[in-house]
Design a protein around this nucleic acid. Structure first.
Lengths: 123, 123
DNA sequence: CTGTATCCTCTCGGATACTG
DNA sequence: CAGTATCCGAGAGGATACAG
C-alpha cells in the first residue's frame, strides 16, 4: 500500500472531490437514511423526507448513483418498483462522516461571547 | 464523556453544519496552506493562491474566522500587517479531512466502464 | 409508482474599481 | 498592505404540471 503524497493543492483537490459528492441539500439526509445497509423504495424516501420535492430527490439520488455511492435496483413490474441502497463504498463513508461529526461537536474553543470577528490585536 | 445519540436527521444536520464551514471555492485550499501550525500574511496567501480574488480570499478567511477555525492577528503598524493561522480546533480538522481523502482515494468499486447510470435490473 | 419537463428565484463567486 | 464597494452572470434548488 504505497502511501500517496499530496501537495497543499492536490490534497485540497482530493477533499473537494469528496465534498462535491456530498454537497446538495438532501444528500446527507438520504445517506443517513441508507446507512446500515438499509434499502428503501423511492416512495419510502419521499415519505421519510417530506420536505424534498420529487425533482430534487431523484436528482440527488441519481448523482450519488453516478458517483458510485448509491445503488439503484429496478424491478420491472407494474406498478414500477425501484429500490435504493448504498454500495460498499457508500457505506465506507460512515466513519469518515463520523470524524466530521465528532469534530463539529467539539466546537470552537471560544463558543460563547464573540458576536463579531474574534481578531486579536497585538499592540 | 456521554456519547451523544443521533437520529438520521440530527446526524445529517450535524455533518451539514461541519460541511457548511468547508464549503466555498477556496476554504480547503486556504486550510491546507495553514495546516501544520503555519501562519501566513494576507499577501502571502494571495501569492500562494494566485487564482483567488482579494474579495473572495478575505471573505472566506473572515467566514472561517467567525466559525472559529481561523485566527486573525493584526499588528497595528504602517504599513498594515495581518497574519492568519488556524485555531486548535481548526488544526483538529486535519484528521477528519484525511478520513475523507482516504475514502475518496479508495474510489468506487466499479470505476471504469459505467458511462451512464449503473442501475441493476431484476428480471 | 416513478419519474420528466419548465420556469423562476436566490445565492455564490468573479471582475473591477476605490480607500485607510 | 489589507482591505471595502458595486455590478454581473451562472448554477443550484424549489414549485408546478405532465408522462410511462
Amino acid at each position: 500500500m504505497a502511501a500517496k503524497t499530496y501537495t497543499r493543492f492536490t490534497a485540497a483537490e482530493g477533499v473537494e472531490n469528496a465534498l462535491k459528492m456530498l454537497e446538495g441539500r438532501w444528500k446527507l439526509i438520504i445517506l443517513f437514511h441508507l446507512f446500515g445497509g438499509r434499502v428503501m423504495r423511492f416512495s419510502e424516501l419521499e415519505r421519510a423526507i417530506p420536505e424534498v420535492s420529487q425533482k430534487m430527490l431523484i436528482q440527488q439520488l441519481r448523482q450519488m448513483e453516478t458517483d458510485g455511492i448509491v445503488c439503484r435496483t429496478v424491478y420491472p413490474e407494474v406498478p414500477p418498483k425501484v429500490e435504493y441502497g448504498l454500495t460498499e463504498w457508500g457505506q465506507a463513508l460512515c466513519p469518515a462522516l463520523d470524524a466530521l461529526l465528532t469534530w463539529a461537536e467539539e466546537g470552537p474553543a471560544i463558543p460563547a461571547g464573540a458576536p463579531d470577528h474574534s481578531s486579536r490585536s497585538i499592540t
